[in-house]
Design a binder for these strands. Structure first.
Length: 510
RNA sequence: GGUGCUAUCGUCUAGCGGUUAGGACAAAAGAUUCUCAAUCUUUAAACCGGGGUUCGAUUCCCCGUAGCACUACCA
């Protein structure tokens, strides 16, 4: 019987959700949606020492912002949750049961070696590994009598439960992206599955038990997990769950834009781009990390950008909506090699989505920025602001960059750009502007066409040169040699304001 | 050190034995224009090296090299 596809995204609440984690969540989501399956969110908080308050809420909010929908688990209406709890710290009783099962079946044993003792071993012996070759020299239930073990435990001594890995066996892992991966069990150490100190399992045990109990069919996770995949296969076997073992897919890593290595938070700080979806306030350190949302990215752009970092369909298509991604995504087209994070391309994606966006929406996003700069948006008709953003959006990547490009529509120039003046404001310019002023004052039809028909012939007749006159005119209106077509500017400014600005400019630069 | 994974323009990638090795970002040049952008056009830019297999390898296999990951009572 074919099981319903169920995938999970299982982050640790140890801080903000890294952008690589976001991509893992996205691929899981796309796969689930494409196959009519469920997407679960599980919190892997088995490391009590690294727990960061607020991290869970952050993860939920980030996924929500990106429209990565969770069907089951954390952050979902509890009536839809049939396999909970979904926080590993709340599943202690469940893990106890399975630890006992492994102990009883002889697949695991209790070890009393302290972290200090192990540290010392590692220093003494060059490649020390706790495994079949060394376990009989250690302090554990394999080298003690049952009574000794009991005494140690009863006296309150901390212990761990280790997985007993049989040596010299080739373990096959079938990976949906990489194919068959084979490794010999001798290089796998007797992994700690449970620690009595905090009464919690480690990742490996919790992960296998939960994936089994939650009926996960596909484990899609980062490549850093590939080396422990054989261990996980061994665990499924030890539990007798071979027949329902999920399929694995290990995703390539996101790498630093320059140099080598995994993309880290430090790279973002160093190169000036966010590595987190949302701004993150670390309550422990008091530091704030920038986020894509706060940097002005549209979630659609982030999704599109991330989707193509490690996956690509046949062909040249680059702009994908979430629905298109769901339709086209496939694990066998995920690339195997790590992808360097190209932040510039991310900006380009946002530019594309800005161009496609309705001007009404952009205007709404721009209004708060106007207010920040002391402009009262109320005095402008909504259409005017929409018109302006529509005019200017093609030259920016973010709404936040709009102000710098179009502030002159709202605020008359108070100073004149030095470079532009030097290049475009000639000796005759005041005289030209005076004559222009006279023409403008008696002009009633203020349309672009009418103004063009008025000014161009005059320039031609006087032989002043179009560039000379128009650039001086532009400086009067904008304060610099930049901006859209001049009749677009006069159109928005209107006759009165246009004339006022020309007069002011002549007065100050005569 | 050990084990594993990976390898096409600077970057993301297409290619799945025979191609002028394609697209996009970034870069450069030109066009356009009253300016700055944008836009359009064009240019430059790659199969890691060596062996095989084959009539023929970027493509398949092996070796080397390089990069990355893992090697915790972290995930």
């Amino acid at each position: 019987m074919k099981r319903k596809v169920r995938v999970r995204f299982a982050p640790s609440p140890t801080g903000a959700l890294h952008i690589g984690g976001v991509r893992t969540a996205l691929y899981n989501y796309l796969f689930a949606r494409q196959n009519g399956g469920d997407m679960l969110l599980r919190i892997e908080d088995t490391d009590s020492a690294r727990f960061v308050p607020g991290a869970e809420e952050y993860i939920i909010e980030a996924l929500r912002w990106l429209h990565i929908e969770i069907d089951e688990g954390i952050g979902v209406d509890s009536s839809l949750n049939s396999h909970g709890p979904y926080r590993q710290s709340e599943r202690r009783d469940i893990y106890h049961q399975y630890v006992k099962q492994l102990l009883d079946s002889g697949n695991a044993y209790i070890a009393f070696d302290t972290p200090q003792e192990l540290e010392q071993k590692r220093n003494e012996i060059k490649n020390f590994q706790y495994d079949a070759s060394t376990r009989m020299q250690m302090r554990n239930s394999l080298t003690m009598t049952a009574q000794e073990v009991k005494n140690h435990i009863d006296s309150g001594e901390q212990y761990v439960v280790r997985f007993k890995v049989n040596p010299d066996e080739d373990v096959h892992v079938h990976d949906l992206i990489r194919g068959e991966v084979v490794i010999n069990s001798s290089i796998i150490d007797d992994k700690v599955l449970y620690k009595s100190a905090d009464d919690l399992p480690t990742y490996h045990l919790a992960n296998i038990v939960d994936d089994h109990l939650m009926e996960i069919t596909h484990v899609i996770r980062g490549e850093e997990w590939l080396p422990s995949a054989p261990l996980h296969v061994l665990l499924y076997r030890a539990f007798g769950w071979d027949d329902t073992m999920p399929q694995f897919a290990h995703l390539p890593l996101l790498l630093k834009p320059d140099g080598n290595g995994k993309l880290s938070k430090r790279d973002g700080d160093r190169l000036g781009f966010p590595v987190f979806p949302l701004e993150f306030h670390d309550q422990k350190t008091g530091t704030v990390s920038s986020g894509y949302r706060e940097s002005g990215y549209y979630p659609e752009a982030v999704i599109n950008f991330l989707a193509l970092l490690g996956w690509h369909a046949t062909g040249d298509k680059e702009i994908y909506s979430m629905q298109e991604l769901i339709n086209d995504f496939s694990l066998d087209r995920v690339s195997k090699a790590g992808a360097k994070f190209d932040f510039e391309k991310g900006k380009w994606f946002n530019h594309q989505y800005l161009q496609m966006r309705d001007n009404k929406l952009i205007a709404q996003e721009f209004i708060p920025i106007l207010k920040e700069h002391g402009v009262n948006p109320e005095i402008y008709p909504a259409e005017t602001i929409e018109h302006i953003v529509g005019l200017m959006k093609e030259r920016v990547n973010f709404v936040s960059e709009l102000w710098e490009q179009c502030n002159f529509f709202f605020v008359a120039p108070t100073e004149y750009d030095e470079k532009s003046m030097k290049k475009r404001w000639k000796e005759d310019s005041p005289k030209h502007m005076q004559e222009l002023l006279a023409l403008l004052k008696q002009q009633d039809d203020w349309s672009a066409e009418a103004l063009d028909n008025l000014i161009m012939p005059w320039i031609a007749e006087k032989e002043y040169g179009v560039g000379i006159v128009m650039n001086a005119f532009r400086i009067c209106l904008v304060g610099a040699a930049r901006g859209p077509h001049i009749w677009e500017i006069t159109d928005v400014l209107g006759k009165e304001e246009t004339i006022r600005r020309v007069e002011e400019c002549i007065r100050r630069n005569a």
